[in-house]
Design a protein around this nucleic acid. Sequence first.
DNA 1: CCTACGATTGAGACCGGACTCACAGTGGGT
DNA 2: ACCCACTGTGAGTCCGGTCTCAATCGTAGG
Lengths: 366, 366
Amino acid sequence: MSSNGSRRRDITVADVAKAANVSKAQAARALGNYGAVSEDVRERVLAAAEELSYRPNELARSMNTGKSNTIGVVVGDIENPHFGLATRGITDTAKKSGFNVILINTDEERTAEVDAVQVLLDKRVDGLIVAPASSSDTEHLQRVQDSGRPLVLLDRTADGLQIDTVTVEMTGVAYESTRYLIEAGHRRIAFISTLKSAVPYSEGVQLDSSQIAERVNGMRRAFLESGLTLPEDLVRFNAGDAESIRNITREVLLMPDPATAVVASDGLIALSVVEAIQELNLSIPEDVSFLMYDDFAWTRLTNPPLTVIAQPVYEMGVAAAEALVRQIEGRKPAAVTPMFTARLIRRNSVGVPRKSGAPSEPTPIR
Amino acid sequence: MSSNGSRRRDITVADVAKAANVSKAQAARALGNYGAVSEDVRERVLAAAEELSYRPNELARSMNTGKSNTIGVVVGDIENPHFGLATRGITDTAKKSGFNVILINTDEERTAEVDAVQVLLDKRVDGLIVAPASSSDTEHLQRVQDSGRPLVLLDRTADGLQIDTVTVEMTGVAYESTRYLIEAGHRRIAFISTLKSAVPYSEGVQLDSSQIAERVNGMRRAFLESGLTLPEDLVRFNAGDAESIRNITREVLLMPDPATAVVASDGLIALSVVEAIQELNLSIPEDVSFLMYDDFAWTRLTNPPLTVIAQPVYEMGVAAAEALVRQIEGRKPAAVTPMFTARLIRRNSVGVPRKSGAPSEPTPIR
DNA sequence: CCTACGATTGAGACCGGACTCACAGTGGGT
DNA sequence: ACCCACTGTGAGTCCGGTCTCAATCGTAGG
């Protein structure tokens, strides 16, 4: 015995047609604004529709147009401002082209991602944008391609698949920023990332994320070209929750030959790393230099302001959505998806390492 | 001449039925797992479905079950971590109950919100969660109610409407935190909020957001009970983009009888306020005390760590989704939606004001 | 051996639009 | 006056599922 009784049936074209004294077909034409309709009929139908406050059922409409005007977006974690911003770019752009967005979070879980893609496909979205958790585990993406539905990848590539992908070229900045650290005197540079990996890093292990792979490669090259070698023991994975990040940070900072600089591979990691550094009563950049990926507003507010690698996240969201819409509308995808570049923004969290005999008053270098 | 030729038609139950040599009805039953189906038929159908990699069309299914297993969420700005977290709570909970989420951003624009609600209704979502931009402008929400579709409000109430609403009781903490500031010696306390308002604040003006109204009321009461009056000239609205926030901050800090403490009504505002304060070469809390709504991780990283009012945002998202699901499943809404409370977290951004003859070494008070 | 009842099964209606097709009116061209 | 091109219009099909209903089958009870 619910309060408002049975759920009232929605008004349909048939209802409107009856009220306007015309056939269903005519009503549909007047409402859908297609075909030939006399002025008289059009007016009566529109009036009746208004009167009954008729609203078309988009589900029904989608069913026989085959278009749902909806795109699916699969990301690892909207809570992460990185994705928040990208999502903003996607939704803004999608809206402009008349598309709505179904958003699914995967927590960077493979199975959740596979499910998400399937659900979206089942819902017959017009296309999907996926930030894949893994670059190698890609059957589900392959399936999307097979289904013929437009797909654009964001942030990370998928090995061996021919898919429009919007990414940042990372090797370059990784190289540049590592050179920067090396020139400041750092040799023991730690890199902390969320990437899940069963084995510790060493040359040749296949990394499951194109993004991370590029960053590490850039670092490696910088060391190489300086006649040095990348300290592989400081390249760390599995930095999941705050606790594990804290542990990793303590580890690299307290080991016998500790890191003198730490690079956090995203904004969320950075938060916990900085906290851990503060807990150890170390100060930046006097005791440890710090550098992070993602330029969030708060990085300018800390003391010192943090040196970051800025990525055009919003623009990438926009580009991904544009590429997808282009595919949906049947235009060929841009021959080559534009490659974005990241930028090193030198603020004051990088200094001269203690060990290397720096002056007692370590000036942040620029 | 597209690369993959015509878009292939999807496999339907009819196809599966044919392949399995049974009627469409039987195939549908076997696949949908309802009605009576012999073991033999079930196996053949399932095998055929597997073989053809059949996937049900959720659109069609929704159409005659009347359920889309989708809920719509309308927020002002996902980019704002406040909503990011809340959205996380919503999607996590929705997923648990088998619902997907269509997310629409409104930029806190009234018309965008009205459109969003309409679109969602047209798409026949099973229910909506809306964080309304305005507490007074509510015809569109009324329309949702009229349509009989479940609706839950988040963060802000809608005047005069009987709708499940998940909010934080703000008067209390607003009062508490203002007392805290007053006791520290502050009399000139500024409050900066995004709320759009054509007229400057003064007692009795109707505020368009229940949230902001409560906060200001709490402040007013705190002043009153201390035998003082709320400095109305320091209650500021229209803090939209970074630029306007900066201007407002400078204004309240540089006026003849300047504010000695600033309260930012959300995390985004806080960012710009703190920046503006730094630009003025004022330090917190020696020159200005600072307090903000929303406890983001970075607030612990600044120097000093910021005193904040923490809201259980994620939990509120969860509660909103739970309430909505409850309504959708026909169970009566919880008699009274649980009221959440916010908490003042005293860190070190509040101190004794300069003017009041504080000692030259102003200790942050606790 | 016959009948009744539950388990199976297939035909077809239906959800709410979009769209095809055949048919009625109209008016211009010759 | 005659033919034809068009605009208007309604009947009905289709999209891809769910679901009703009547028919069929098997077999247990009498």
